[in-house]
Design a protein around this nucleic acid. Structure first.
Lengths: 219, 219
DNA sequence: TGATAGAGTCGACATGGTGTTGATAGCGTC
DNA sequence: GACGCTATCAACACCATGTCGACTCTATCA
């Protein structure tokens, strides 16, 4: 007997318990979502589309996921895991070689965003409407802001960066910049920096804001 | 006979022609929209809510506006006119006193955003779903980016700012930063800079990115 | 071996929103 | 006093979401 009150194979966003069958159906739904998102906005995709794509009927979809957005949330978890892995290392080594490490951070975000473009675009689509997705984005952003803040503090502590605005506040606006600029780059929504240059330009703004020169002193 | 193919009092987003009656109904719809947006997200407001609020039935609403988003677009035009007025002057005088003028620009954007918060939040909500709103945002952003770009070029030409990344690309990421950071400030969606500080922090990032020092040389 | 339980499935329905149609009411004017 | 235009709405067609209840299949165990 499952104790978490689940009616579906699991509480949908709850964590894995052993489940013999049905797992492939869940994967089929996720795969269908990714495939459809390559070509269509989330709002253009109906639950019926997802169900049919996975070879099931609409009511059966609800056996696996609570809603369309719950599917997105599951996909988002995957993306996050990948991003966390990619950024952990360069963020820890900022002091060794600031320019290289900050560039690696921004490049890692670029790469993650790029390779999961459909999922992140869908996220942008609903983050202002769906409280749960908004919460998720906020939590993820908070992680990056805090890591950035700590790195800025460390750079100031060792004298590599001069004092300036609060490190947290600075970290927030810099992350906001990356967030929006990458989104625009992959979307063509409004003027966007060409993909080939966007990391360079972001890095410039990032470094000068923190170090107040274009080239911080070497370690 | 109206020549623009309108069925309603005007082509809704088309431009003013003389219209004796019904204008107050249109204003009532707009006023209702603003009032409801103070308390609810756009997605929570139905066309029926707007119609009832204006004292008419739902089909009659369609006589005045093509859709819910068309109402938003009309409100947005008002905001834009105000923003254009507020920013024109400081942008023209950047060379006289860069720090003061850039701050005035950012402060003007802050003020505009703040005083039209409900409308701009609703815009963020649908800009990823509604092509017309997306287009509108893109156009507006393009205006600010171009003005910023020209100002950066001018500063470089007179030797006040050193060379750096392409002025257009820099203008884009700086505007992206303002866009997203102000949104977060007024929304509490994710970590946000306190309202009292946000202009200062944005100004810091803005100045250092352009002048590559915290304090550009006086004119 | 056949009763039982639970996972998995879906037809049919209820709900709630959007947008359209067609009929009508009021009013100025020629 | 009839024509044309603005303005209005009841009724309808449509579509997406989410729920209910009945059904099937399979594995287990007395």
């Amino acid at each position: 007997m499952t104790l978490d009150g689940a009616t579906g194979p699991r509480a949908s966003r709850g964590r894995r318990t052993s489940r013999p069958t049905g797992d492939d159906r869940e994967q089929a739904i996720l795969a269908t979502a990714v495939r459809l998102l390559e070509r269509h906005a989330l709002s253009e995709i109906s639950i019926d589309d997802l169900a049919r794509g996975a070879g099931i009927s609409r009511p059966t979809f609800y056996f696996y996921f609570r809603s369309k957005d719950a599917v997105l949330l599951t996909l988002l978890d995957r993306v996050n895991e990948e991003a966390v892995r990619a950024l952990a290392d360069p963020l820890d080594r900022v002091a060794e070689d600031p320019v290289r490490c900050w560039r690696e951070c921004l490049a890692a975000l670029y790469t993650t965003f790029h390779s999961h473009r459909p999922v992140l675009l869908a996220t942008a689509e609903v983050r202002h409407t769906n409280a749960e997705v908004a919460r998720w984005c906020a939590d993820m952003m908070d992680v990056w802001v805090t890591r950035t803040e700590q790195a800025i503090e460390a750079e100031r502590a060792r004298g590599a960066a001069p004092p300036g605005p609060g490190s947290r506040e600075l970290a927030i606006v810099l992350n906001a910049m990356v967030d929006r600029a990458l989104y625009a780059t992959f979307t063509g929504d409004g003027p966007a920096v060409p993909a080939a240059e966007v990391v360079d330009v972001l890095l410039h703004a990032w470094l000068t804001s923190i170090y107040q020169t274009a080239e911080p002193a070497p370690a």
